[in-house]
Design a protein around this nucleic acid. Structure first.
Lengths: 347, 347
DNA sequence: CTGAAAGCGCTTACAG
DNA sequence: CTGAAAGCGCTTACAG
């Protein structure tokens, strides 16, 4: 419907080359001509056809975001924050949710992104070597969020350190039987799976350093949901010797843990300390002690790194590794015996 | 990088016209030629240039989704469900988050969608007549979610009926002082504002029908967040005569309400009944009685309606008005005096 | 500073 | 069933 360069050119008595240059603030156009062309373009309501310029330049002006299950809180947050940075920079955002393995395969099967995007943001899914190869074949700049692909641009969290820190907090409180509830990926999950593993490692390391025996029955893995958390906690309650504290690899699971404990009449933090991971927007409501890992920042910084890869002037930014930070709330406390001792022996 | 129609044509000893037709399963190509062309295309790793076909056909193969603040739970859910339907139908999803009024103005200022999308889904924002006009000017099919634009294709919730139902539930339990906590839009909100108003109307209507006086001090409005809910509840606790029940226009606010009540030592549902609105994924954890309004369905059905507008064969589907449904959980009960009477007088 | 022309990669009447 | 050609709307060397 809207007019074309030709229409503008004719009306302004110049060539289309001049129109093109004038409208894009390119050098080689006199001030006067430029002004005139711009005014006429405005009058005519001219808006350049994206398809035309894409075909001519090969640039699309769009960035693709590839994400696992969007209905999870985390991905909504990083999508929102990354999207804002990209739009700010003038890019359109193309959204690819790979909710299950079928969608993932379909996506990586073809050159899904060819001619559609100038770059791609990959959230939390660890591409296989083959997948990475097909991505490379379309040679687009890529930035990764959360998947530890060495040598690639991106942002990730020091999950190992975070796991240690969470466990340390419980150890410092005096706990000796500390359980771990980790994320078990669903069979058709599209995630990479690296971060949870590292949280577990950090936890084990802290326990070892403190001279605590990590009982196998104190590590359970479940689906990352409130229901999964509930189930995991139920299993822990059947351990030979029940733990006095539990480190849960996601806040959502921790919510399920809290529900189960409440249902079972087990006081938190009186009988059981609980620490989550995420600083989910609702963890404050539940007064959950948790590890914050700057979720919004992860999204925006990944986007910024991709932009640095695309825009020639911006220097390449190094990978960013974020440290998680303990947020102390009301679900962690010294174990019962210690609390007793302390109140009985004022310093 | 990938080869072009010309390359395929040359290799197959046919014209580009034939290649184009063969690859898109158009009539007028012999089975044999078609097969041969398709094989060669595959061998060459040919993938059609989107920019080329867009320019030639005017079709983009993309749908734009325009949404308010994406980090809100509701919008993440409807985006996810709508996106799945669109991708299933072969469309790319272009995401426009209009998080504040500035973004909204920028979006509606130009013909942002011209040449970028074949249709647009508008979530929960009520376009002004001028905005609607600029949208129309780009003449794209539009489907609305949640904004009551009469005569337009879309999906919305019967908020009026839902408000009545929620209030009825409390009335039926025997409550006589029933408060309402509504959503007050932030100054730079991009939302339309229609649904909350209707929830309030339904509430008032139910009270009137039951012969209950709706005290002005029983209606408070706050920002749609847990903090807003907390503030609103605090204000209600200062009313001349405190309510015994409260209908909260969103679950997130209701979470804040529950926190405030807990902090104040007010038992739920013993001293105060609370009913929310959304059936938020975490409302079950908090055992919150609420109104479910089929959030995922809203997204997918809006997408389906847009597709019906775009694909010629599919008949136009009528607008969909969804009824909300009460989910009874643990935060609603008869008011204290009634409970007392009932236990004292066994039937 | 300005313009004529080729080219980006497709699709689609039109003719055969 | 197949092909030659025009056209979609831009950008960009190249020449002046």
């Amino acid at each position: 419907m809207s007019s074309t360069v030709d229409a503008v050119a004719e009306r302004a008595n110049v060539s289309v080359s001049t129109v093109s240059r004038a409208l894009r603030d390119m050098p080689g156009v006199s001030q006067e001509t430029r002004k005139r062309v711009q005014n006429i373009a405005r009058e005519l309501g001219y808006v350049p056809s994206l398809a035309g310029s894409r075909l001519a330049t090969g640039r699309t002006g769009a960035i693709a975001i590839v994400t696992p299950n969007l209905s999870k809180w985390f991905f909504g947050q990083v999508l929102a924050s990354a999207g804002r940075v990209l739009r700010q920079a003038g890019f359109d955002v193309l959204l690819y949710e790979l909710a299950d393995t079928a969608a993932r395969e379909r996506f990586f099967a073809g050159s899904s992104l060819a001619g559609r995007a100038d770059g791609v943001l990959i959230f939390a899914l660890q591409p296989t070597p083959e997948e990475l190869a097909t991505l490379e074949a379309q040679n687009l700049p890529i930035a990764f969020l959360g998947s530890g692909t060495p040598g690639r641009s991106g942002v990730r969290v020091d999950d190992h350190g975070a796991g240690r820190a969470a466990a340390r907090h419980l150890i410092n409180l005096g706990h000796e039987r500390i359980a771990f509830i980790g994320i078990r990926e669903a069979a058709d999950s599209t995630l990479g799976g690296v971060p949870p593993a590292n949280r577990l490692k950090g936890y084990r390391e802290a326990l070892a350093e403190a001279g605590l025996e990590p009982g196998q029955d104190l590590e359970v893995h479940e689906e990352n949901s409130t229901a999964g958390g509930s189930r995991a906690m139920s299993r822990l309650l059947c351990a030979e010797v029940a733990p006095t504290a539990v480190f849960v690899a996601s806040d959502e699971m921790a919510f399920g843990v809290l529900r189960t404990l409440k249902a079972g009449g087990i006081d938190v933090p009186g009988d059981m300390s609980v620490i989550g991971f995420d600083n989910h927007e609702l963890s404050e409501i539940l007064d959950l002690t948790t590890m914050d890992h700057s979720v919004a920042l992860q999204g925006s910084e990944t986007a910024r790194r991709l932009l640095a890869l695309i825009t020639p002037d911006a220097g390449a930014e190094p990978d960013l590794v974020l440290s998680a930070q303990l947020i102390v709330r009301g679900t962690t406390a010294p174990p019962f015996p210690l609390r007793g001792r302390r109140t009985a022996t004022p310093a």
